[in-house]
Design a protein around this nucleic acid. Structure first.
Lengths: 188, 188
DNA sequence: GACTTACGAGACTAAGAGTTCCGGAACTGT
DNA sequence: ACAGTTCCGGAACTCTTAGTCTCGTAAGTC
């Protein structure tokens, strides 16, 4: 009933939000700027996204689809592929500011934390588990390692490397994968 | 010349900021609330801290003095002590929101990033290096590992565990230390 | 054609960062 | 003692921004 939503507006809003996230970061992004860049009214944004948080979440987190890590045939190869996926995602100039901004605000707001969890963290955790289970099946690992710890280590290392310490990422996937490969094989 | 600053005001402002950070987080902290809680005028705050960022930095980051990790006699013990220091610091109800908030804003602002680096990251990195060098001297490690990677892994894991995935921290120092101990010994 | 919802545009409210001014207090130099 | 300076709490102020609301109009359904 009534006039249907214009899907070009949906897209223009998300595109504008991503562009502005990359240019001015989470705190610097204003709803007026998004509306102006998208060539739409602010009401059209708020009709789709209740808050700035929700807009940023939709633009930079939702449906990002960390593709499941491919089976490269070895644990080392799988780990490097896994690291490359995370590095590529965090290297996206819109995703990094969005993630940090949302994570900072999720401290107080529990529902946002839950949304982030189910959208990103759970997905990534499952990818990690798949890689490790494959290694067990291949016989590369004697038994399944501590998945919580592995998950925090793998994602946390990339996060810290890129967004806290801020080092170049060319060699990170290889170095991280080699280290974790040896570590996993050594921990019985 | 002129009336000297009242040091009780300095302290009251920082205490109020820490209390509010713990209660309402970085985004929820307002300068008016800090002034009211501290029983001072806003001008007294801005006379000491140019911006909200600077206030939070001074209240929750500056001079935190991650104490240098003690020599426990073994790499495993040193690693667990190191992890406990980081967990304790990030577990501080004022420090965690402050760090996330500042880190999120540091994306756009480079000077804040530099300040965070020299105040926290460099200090922690030196602590890490000290532990690893001690292990080499003891003969537990054949040679010095990749310190950049170790630094990002150790801090990043705790960060991710506590602030992203949000799991209980009782066993984290032991599990992380045991894993890293085996990993370091295994990586030649 | 009646009704409903979307649209861009812009006015509007509320809240918060940062500034400025007040009357008064504390300290320094003469 | 007194002038000059910097502090103090308090409050009024500017400016920016999130979010709401109201226009007049367009695009659909019954």
């Amino acid at each position: 009933m009534g006039r249907p939503r214009d899907t070009r507006v949906d897209q223009a809003v998300l595109d504008a939000a991503r562009a502005l996230l990359a240019e001015v970061g989470y705190a610097g992004l204003t709803m007026d700027a998004v509306a102006a860049r998208a060539g739409v009214g602010k009401a059209a944004i708020y009709r789709r996204h209740a808050t700035k948080q929700a807009l940023v979440f939709a633009a930079a987190v939702h449906g990002v689809e960390l593709e499941p890590p491919p089976d490269t045939g070895s644990l080392l190869g799988d780990l490097e592929a896994l690291a490359r996926v995370i590095v590529a995602h965090l290297g996206n100039p819109a995703a990094a500011p969005a993630l940090m901004g949302l994570l900072a605000e999720a401290g107080a707001d529990t529902s946002l934390g839950h949304a982030l969890c189910s959208a990103l963290i759970e997905v990534e955790r499952e990818g990690n588990a798949a890689v490790l289970e494959r290694a067990v099946r291949r016989g590369e690992l004697a038994r399944l390692p501590d998945i919580d710890l592995f998950h925090a280590m793998f994602g946390g290392t990339v996060l810290s490397w890129m967004l806290v310490v801020r080092l170049p990422t060319d060699e990170l996937p290889r170095r991280l994968a080699e280290f974790m490969d040896k570590a996993l094989r050594a921990s019985h």
